[in-house]
């Protein structure tokens, strides 16, 4: 082959590759995020809806049955009338997985915040973000809370969680002594659920982050909330611990809205990480029954 022809061929292949290579634009990200915010605030994930239905089927307490019935009616009504499930449409929390080979055009953080601005405006969602001292509302629910993780591949996965304040207020991080172990973890969680009572809108989802450092435990606890209720923990030991502690939590009798009953918790999920030999960090992230989250893959 002549050198001129070869150069031409190489150029053409490069051009084809560039055309095949996906470029994710800021506009695509903003549009997808706006859609996620609106959708997640109007429809409960199917596993959460099933969890509420199963709770109703198991519950004998008439007051608790009445409340669970109202929550199912509310979910149906929100879907029909395009209304938010709850007036607390949350701070906008994002778990973003960015493929190491993904190509972005524009500022990822700015694009997500723009999506929040659009979604919370267009969807008639409540803006609940304010300065911690002046309490001045930002007016568009930004800035979002964005957790970014690099992963293999070339995709961008964005998971949105509408995190309400009432349940977040009942969450805690504690640093246990290593000797307290699993019994100490169980005691702390049970004490927290009992003290929280009706405040965080049970039936709850509970995310536990065990190990890591102070901040890693908190992040794991929040991430644990995103696992679907019908998806078992992949680690058999953790699966057994989740089952044991869920049983104990539901034995407390807190019940829907704290007014008594069996349905205190729909699911308790654990994520763990290695920790310092001196510590046993534990984070308990409480989520209300309106566990609104949704994800998109770009």
């Amino acid at each position: 082959m002549l050198s001129g022809q070869r150069a031409c061929l190489v150029r053409e292949i490069r051009l084809q590759n560039a055309m095949l290579e996906k470029i994710i634009t800021a506009e695509e990200i903003s549009a997808a995020v706006a859609e996620l915010c609106v959708k997640a605030n109007r429809r409960l994930p199917p596993d959460v809806l099933r969890g509420l239905e199963e709770s109703l089927a198991r519950e004998h307490n008439p007051g608790a049955r009445e409340i669970l019935g109202q929550l199912l009616q509310n979910a149906a009504l929100a879907g029909e009338k395009d209304l938010p499930l709850c007036q607390d449409t949350g701070l906008a929390v994002f778990f973003v997985e960015l493929g190491q080979e993904a190509r972005l055009r524009g500022d990822l953080y700015a694009a997500i915040n723009e999506g929040v601005r659009r979604g919370y405006g267009r969807g008639f969602l409540r803006k609940s973000s304010c300065d911690p001292f002046t309490r001045e509302n930002s007016g568009d629910n930004t800035p979002a809370i964005i957790h970014l993780e690099l992963v293999p591949g070339s995709n961008l996965r964005i998971c949105f969680l509408a995190k309400g304040g009432g349940s977040e207020n009942m969450s805690r991080v504690t640093m246990l002594a290593p000797a307290q172990g699993w019994p100490g973890i169980k005691d702390f969680v049970l004490g927290r659920v009992r003290a929280a009572g009706g405040n965080p809108c049970p039936p709850l989802l509970i995310g536990l982050g065990i190990g890591g450092t102070f901040e890693r435990a908190a992040l794991l606890a929040k991430k644990a909330l995103l696992r679907p209720l019908d998806e078992p923990n992949p680690e058999p030991d953790l699966r057994e611990k989740e089952r044991e502690l869920l049983e104990l939590v539901n034995g407390l009798g807190v019940g829907p809205m704290g007014l008594g009953g069996r349905a205190t918790c729909l699911g308790l999920h654990i994520l763990k990480a290695n920790c310092h030999i001196a510590s046993l960090p534990l984070a308990v992230n409480i989520q209300c029954h309106s566990a609104r989250h949704a994800a998109v893959l770009l």
Partner: peptide
């Protein structure tokens, strides 16, 4: 009085 939390649409 208590109202049902999370039943905002209803």
């Amino acid at each position: 009085f208590g109202a049902t939390g999370g039943a905002g649409a209803l």
